[in-house]
Amino acid sequence: MARVELTAQRGKIEARIGEDTVLFKSSGAESEVGHWPTEYILAALGSCFSGTVFSYARTKGLPLEKVMVALEGEVVSGPSRIASITMEVEFLGNLTRAEKEQLLAVGERACTVMNTLKRGVETIVTRLRD
């Protein structure tokens, strides 16, 4: 189970993730500190993908040294959302082209965030606290 607590006040949005506090921007809350929530979606995708690939490489004994990922998301309105994401990946290490393609396929198949974004969330429940 993943859990985040968030507090939003005019000019400041804070999310508590474990022991860390993360700051977000929002035009609606007039907040200019931190990053846009869409940037965190891209960061979550890249970090999940990279971690998945490293785990697989370790299990298979592949000499993966570094993963470099650049992500861009196209934000559109009607409804407001990220409509498309482009992810460029570079694997560093003494790897063959076939091993790099294998790592890419594993990352695409096993990354939790990528699976969530591609397939959508089945249920989102919102309710008021008393």
Score class of each variant (00 low, 15 high):
residue 108 E to K: 05
residue 84 S to H: 04
residue 117 L to F: 09
residue 70 A to C: 05
residue 72 E to D: 15
residue 79 P to C: 06
residue 120 G to A: 10
residue 100 K to D: 09
residue 18 G to M: 09
residue 17 I to H: 00
residue 117 L to N: 06
residue 130 D to M: 02
residue 46 G to M: 11
residue 40 Y to R: 07
residue 51 G to I: 05
residue 32 E to N: 15
residue 57 A to L: 03
residue 39 E to K: 07
residue 15 A to G: 14
residue 44 A to E: 06
residue 116 T to W: 02
residue 95 L to S: 04
residue 104 L to G: 00
residue 35 H to K: 15
residue 25 K to E: 15
residue 90 E to I: 08
residue 105 A to E: 13
residue 81 R to S: 14
residue 106 V to G: 02
residue 20 D to L: 08
residue 107 G to K: 01
residue 102 Q to H: 01
residue 27 S to K: 10
residue 46 G to H: 03
residue 95 L to P: 12
residue 90 E to R: 09
residue 34 G to P: 09
residue 80 S to F: 11
residue 115 N to R: 01
residue 76 V to H: 11
residue 125 V to W: 04
residue 19 E to L: 03
residue 43 A to S: 09
residue 44 A to W: 00
residue 94 N to L: 10
residue 87 M to F: 07
residue 122 E to R: 04
residue 108 E to P: 04
residue 60 K to Q: 14
residue 8 A to E: 08
residue 73 G to N: 08
residue 121 V to Q: 12
residue 113 V to A: 13
residue 72 E to C: 12
residue 43 A to K: 01
residue 109 R to Y: 10
residue 64 L to Y: 08
residue 42 L to W: 07
residue 66 K to C: 02
residue 121 V to G: 04
residue 50 S to K: 05
residue 51 G to A: 03
residue 14 E to H: 11
residue 84 S to K: 06
residue 95 L to M: 06
residue 114 M to R: 06
residue 55 S to W: 00
residue 60 K to H: 11
residue 114 M to H: 09
residue 15 A to E: 13
residue 85 I to Q: 11
residue 40 Y to N: 09
residue 130 D to H: 06
residue 99 E to G: 01
residue 105 A to V: 01
residue 14 E to K: 12
residue 18 G to E: 12
residue 75 V to R: 11
residue 3 R to P: 12
residue 127 R to Y: 14
residue 68 M to W: 02
residue 59 T to P: 00
residue 50 S to W: 03
residue 14 E to L: 12
residue 86 T to P: 05
residue 97 R to H: 05
residue 97 R to D: 14
residue 123 T to Y: 07
residue 80 S to R: 06
residue 47 S to G: 10
residue 41 I to V: 15
residue 49 F to K: 13
residue 116 T to G: 10
residue 5 E to S: 15
residue 69 V to W: 01
residue 5 E to H: 10
residue 82 I to E: 03
residue 80 S to M: 11
residue 105 A to N: 04
residue 105 A to R: 06
residue 1 M to Q: 13
residue 44 A to H: 00
residue 98 A to Y: 01
residue 121 V to T: 11
residue 120 G to H: 07
residue 91 F to L: 03
residue 49 F to Q: 05
residue 9 Q to M: 10
residue 1 M to D: 15
residue 17 I to Y: 10
